[in-house]
Design a protein around this nucleic acid. Structure first.
Lengths: 224, 224
DNA sequence: CGAAGTCCTTACCGGGGAGTAGGTTGGGGA
DNA sequence: TCCCCAACCTACTCCCCGGTAAGGACTTCG
């Protein structure tokens, strides 16, 4: 039944340890990004890496060790990307600008790494991912319509006038994410009263968007 | 070995179906919140619910069905809480204010529900939860220090002067969450160039915080 | 009292996947 | 040329956990 065994020379043979470890980590990141930790199988990782299973254990240890290794490598890469553009001498707004550029740059270049870092979710086969996405979509839609209404009551900021719908959708997603994140933070600081937390986010969100409505924008220094 | 079998009357016996279903869902939400979907076992859920395993399957179907039921119930509760305070006649800022209050109110009263909805993560036994939390902490620290520096360069907003450190930490968490969320949104709209996404979040974040630095605040109408 | 139906349990099955035992190949040194 | 060791694979074992079969007890109605 193993009639047409492929020449097998296709799989580069007997590589030095460091190279193999890189290959394995790359494969693991890809698989973990697609399936999440639990649904990912060591068999699939070994297959993607073009290697047999015992090699994984010989080089990277248990499945948990391997996952931690992925988290560490991608995490370090992310932090390195952000800190690379850091310039403590620059004014705060420029620093923030550069940090955001670096962050989104990382996401663009290492989408799988970002997925591994951010969504240990996606665990099951996209089944209740649908449920969650639907709920999230409803909330984003709610906020988005609110923003659209607010925009139509004020002056549309010049820079975002062209693709308003896109902008409001993206901003709505950001607001929802900010709310979720602050909620997590709140769980770690339970002594804060509701009003303080809510008004803090309110100040962040509304004052920012209020400025956009009135046509004030932050622009990168020197045309970039 | 089953020497001192407890009277077992402690477990309320022979309850009507509706009550049992509520008990089961409550237990499932608690367990899923603590362990995530995959690491949670039906045995543990049945134990927490004070019931035997086949009852779960008789009443709620498979493990996935049960999980979906939890998502739906908690999701509906969340949406209901938010929509309850909605008043389309109110001005946008008041609407947003009420929505935030309702949202955080839900999180406060149904922390487990929120966890189930938001972090299908936490999958493994808090092991690499630590890894992720550490990375997130570094990023929040980075942003937090940036905000502290920015505040000390401007006028401290009157309302947040007392607990500046807390405020900046919370705002930093919110900004990080907004960034993560917008990153996810971006993955669903890959045609957007980096600069557009980054500057959109920049406008949201900085203009909002810029106002705070200059002492301008949004205040709830009529002292609430 | 007996029949009927519902609630509930113990005790098991089967599959999938983490982890391993042991043999095989190929290259570098004597 | 021959040996030896490191890289590598095939082919298992074993456990955990989702799911179920088959039967027991309490309650209610004729």
């Amino acid at each position: 039944m193993h009639a047409e065994e492929p020449p097998r020379a296709a799989r580069a043979k007997r590589l030095p340890r460091a190279v193999r470890e890189r290959q394995i980590l790359d494969a693991a990141v890809a698989v973990f990004a697609r399936h999440g930790f639990h649904t990912a199988s060591m068999d699939e990782i070994s297959e993607v890496a073009g290697i047999s299973k015992p090699m994984l254990y010989a080089y990277l240890g248990s499945k948990e060790d391997l996952y931690v290794a992925c988290l560490r490598r991608e995490g370090e890469r992310l932090m390195a990307a952000i800190e690379a553009g850091a310039d403590p001498a620059a004014p705060p707004d420029v620093q923030l600008w550069r940090g955001l550029r670096a962050f989104f740059g990382f996401v663009a270049e290492h989408a799988d790494g970002w997925r591994v870092l951010h969504q240990p979710a996606s665990a099951a086969g996209g089944q209740f991912a649908g449920e969650l996405a639907a709920l999230r979509g409803r909330m984003i839609g709610l906020v988005g319509r609110l923003l659209v209404r607010a925009v139509s009551n004020g002056n549309v900021a010049a820079g975002i006038g062209a693709a308003t719908r896109r902008d409001t959708d993206g901003l709505a997603a950001a607001l929802v994410g900010a709310g979720e994140s602050m909620a997590d933070w709140w769980l770690a600081h339970p002594d804060e009263p509701v009003g303080v937390v809510a008004s803090r986010l309110m100040n962040l969100a509304w004052m920012g968007f209020g400025d956009l409505v009135e046509g004030r924008m932050w622009v990168p220094p020197h045309k970039r």
